[in-house]
């Protein structure tokens, strides 16, 4: 069985028996999964609603946790709730959905907890870089545009694009080094 499923289900079963520690771990984990899930399905204009949706979903999970049938997969149950909340959100805001909703199972299909965490780490690191460099790094390293494309769309010379990226990466490296030192 999927290791994520096994782990989350164990936490859920313990939570249903009243184990608050497991419950805390479970909810924190799910908050991350859910944030990623909603972010991917909201258009740019509505990305800001992701956190509200995460909270609503967690709240519903809490008040309706009796509807989890312990002989069934936990992830499917949670996904049904998250999906309901998402559709309800679309309805309430009269959003016409153009992205297929039903690449559904991938809320958990792959273990995205690490991917999501990595993504958040990257975003946090990028926040510490000056805005100009951040934009350049984002375009080249994350969106995968070439230096030439970026130079053209920003109106900078290729050389200054390269310099900007280099500076940004140095800043990130310095930051990471600093953090590594803290950890020691």
């Amino acid at each position: 069985m999927n290791p994520v499923e096994t782990r989350l289900k164990e936490l859920m079963l313990a939570s249903l028996d009243g184990d608050a520690r497991s419950y805390g771990i479970l909810l924190n984990d799910l908050a991350r999964h859910l944030r990623f899930y909603f972010l991917r399905r909201l258009s740019d204009a509505h990305k800001g609603d992701a956190d509200d949706l995460v909270q609503e979903t967690l709240m519903s999970l809490h008040t309706r946790r009796a509807t989890y049938e312990t002989d069934r997969p936990f992830t499917a149950w949670l996904h049904a709730i998250a999906r309901y909340k998402l559709i309800d959100h679309f309805r309430r805001n009269r959003i016409r959905v153009t992205v297929p909703l039903d690449d559904a199972e991938d809320l958990f299909a792959v273990d995205q907890s690490d991917a999501a965490a990595d993504r958040m780490d990257v975003e946090r690191l990028l926040q510490s870089v000056p805005e100009k460099s951040r934009d350049l790094i984002y375009r080249t390293k994350i969106e995968g545009q070439s230096i030439a494309e970026v130079a053209q769309s920003t109106g900078l010379s290729e050389a200054s694009v390269k310099v900007g990226i280099h500076r940004g990466i140095k800043a990130i490296a310095a930051k990471l080094k600093g953090r590594a030192d803290d950890d020691r």
Partner: peptide, 11 residues
């Protein structure tokens, strides 16, 4: 999460 965890009861 802190609030929900705090008010958890067995079901």
């Amino acid at each position: 999460i802190a609030r929900l965890t705090g008010e958890l009861k067995p079901v």
